[in-house]
Design a protein around this nucleic acid. Structure first.
Length: 473
RNA sequence: GGCCCGUUCGUCUAGUGGUUAGGACCCAGGGUUUUCAUCUCUGUAACAGGAGUUCGAUUCUCCUACGGGCUACCA
């Protein structure tokens, strides 16, 4: 049987890094075994709907080059792929359960339920529905359903326990008496996650459910639903949670969680994919840098971890710096171009832009940090009083004067020749070490630290270099 | 409160019934480099605790502790 997995986000905002991890593991597993991956939008909560969330999600996946075989964009034979468009399907299925007595209507008001829960909480009981409406006369209940607001609940069976096997955690068992009669259909006619998820997974032919560990406690309810319908269960693979530095579930309160935020800060799609792949999963060997294609080959459910993983931004930065250094220069230039333009830096001189990027890429962790190292090549340098004093002192003047004069002699300098010229300058002026290099770099670049003098002049161009030096004399 | 899941360096993790418990990030120090960065070398640092099984447990079992998740007409 062909493997089919799905990523089923609810459109409540931007794609979360935890969501990316779930999507990625699904994607990688599908690719690894030659299966299919479905994108299904779980928009059953009308009150939490966010405008443009779906468009946003889709464009983020595009930026990451993760594609789906079925979904809102590419269609497919098992649609619609928005749960809000599948209401007739849920309706049909709930009727079956109602007829079999495996589900029942409940007319209790939200206030009443809230009160009951409060009471249970105070008396330290297990919090669950008291099954009041289960006692209702069937005919009467049917009549009331016509005009009264109500929900449909599942009737948890009286068996001892529900048992299922999670691929990561193996055997998981829970006593049925612990389970609540979960609401399946809400009073607005929409299904809850628990119901829609089971119905859709079955109807869409999903064979493996990879999702976050937060779903583990409600899986027994899903298992019961599969049993009610006499449907084959998919394999469950619950992924360890992504954590804040304090080990709580990764959340907005402790920094960025949206994939978009990281992209906007200059982290590369390649980095995000690689980094998130290593949270809760590990390869066979000690390799850490993986492209998507490599991950597709390496991925295995067997090497998924059990315990939660802290999202460590320091390591993310390091990994991003590795990609900045090692990806083809053209790739980095493509990522950098819009960022440079937004900062008003001119990228039309491609040769210069490339040289600037080449210099900056090995000094930073993100695309955005490249700006700081590149601006001096494009804009007039600014000097502090301290800098000015240093440039004005006698040895500095000797160095700058001699060097710029010699530099003017010809226009086609190689880096090697400039290196020789620097040495000659030291010899002729008698200035050396820090006193020699500091004024040159300061005049050319506006900073005490930075690229080699030959590289500096190469990027700037001899004419501009001479200009910058002469201003200081 | 109840239920469920988890626990190897600060973090991501490897690993085994007998190992000097390995790698990566971070941090510290050395080397390369005129500076900075890169690169490179080295170092610091972990099996939560207790009991049991065993000739021997980090590894297997149980208990405790701690951490987390769930406990909605949210997903």
């Amino acid at each position: 049987m062909e493997v089919k997995v799905r990523f089923a986000p609810s459109p409540t905002g931007h794609l979360h890094v935890g969501g990316l991890r779930t999507a990625l593991f699904n994607y990688l597993y599908a690719k690894k075994v030659g299966g299919k991956i479905v994108l299904r939008i779980e928009d059953t909560d009308q009150s939490r709907k966010v405008e443009n969330a779906v468009e946003n999600l889709i464009s983020t996946f595009e930026a990451l080059q993760i594609s789906f075989d079925e979904g809102p964009v590419q269609g497919g034979d098992y649609g619609p792929y928005f749960q809000s468009e599948r209401l007739p399907i849920y309706n049909e299925q709930i009727k079956l359960l109602l007829e079999d007595g495996k589900a029942y209507p409940c007319f209790c008001s939200a206030e009443k339920l809230e009160e009951a829960r409060k009471k249970q909480s105070e008396t330290k009981q297990t919090i669950k529905y008291n099954r009041q409406c289960l006692k209702l006369d069937a005919a009467e209940a049917r009549k009331r359903m016509e005009k009264e607001p109500h929900v449909i609940r599942m009737k948890v069976p009286g068996e001892e326990e529900v048992l299922f096997y999670d691929v990561v955690r193996e055997r998981v068992a829970i006593r049925c008496e612990e389970l609540d009669d979960q609401v399946l259909i809400k009073s607005d006619g929409f299904p809850t996650y628990h119901f829609a998820n089971v119905v859709d997974d079955h109807l869409m032919g999903i064979t493996h459910v990879l999702r976050g560990e937060e779903w583990l406690p409600s899986t027994p309810k899903h298992v019961i639903l599969y049993q009610f319908f006499n449907w084959k269960q998919p394999k469950f693979i619950h992924l360890p949670l992504l954590l804040n530095p304090d080990k709580s579930k990764l959340s907005k309160r402790q920094g960025d969680v949206a994939v978009e935020d990281y992209l906007n800060k200059g982290f590369l799609p390649e980095t995000l994919i690689n980094f998130v792949a290593l949270l809760g999963w590990h390869p066979k060997n000690e390799q850490e840098l993986f492209g998507l294609a490599e991950l597709e080959k390496e991925f295995s459910l067997k090497r998924i971890n059990k315990s939660g993983a802290v999202f460590d931004i320091e390591k993310l930065k390091w990994m991003n710096s590795q990609y900045l250094k090692n990806l083809p220069i053209e790739t980095i230039m493509n990522y950098a171009e819009p960022v440079f333009k937004a900062e008003g830096l001119e990228t039309t001189d491609v040769g210069k832009f490339q040289a600037v990027v080449e210099n900056a890429r090995k000094r930073v962790d993100t695309i955005h940090e490249m700006i700081e190292h590149s601006t001096p090549f494009y804009t007039e340098v600014q000097f502090s009083d301290e800098d000015k004093n240093l440039l004005r002192n006698e040895p500095s003047q000797k160095v700058v004067t001699f060097f710029s004069k010699k530099l003017s002699n010809k226009s086609n300098w190689t880096e090697a020749e400039i290196k020789i010229l620097v040495n000659e300058t030291a010899e002729k002026t008698g200035v050396k070490g820090k006193d020699l290099y500091a004024p040159l770099r300061l005049a050319l670049f506006g900073a005490a630290h930075g690229p080699d003098i030959p590289l500096l002049i190469d990027i700037l161009g001899v004419d501009e270099a001479i200009n910058r030096l002469k201003v200081q004399i």
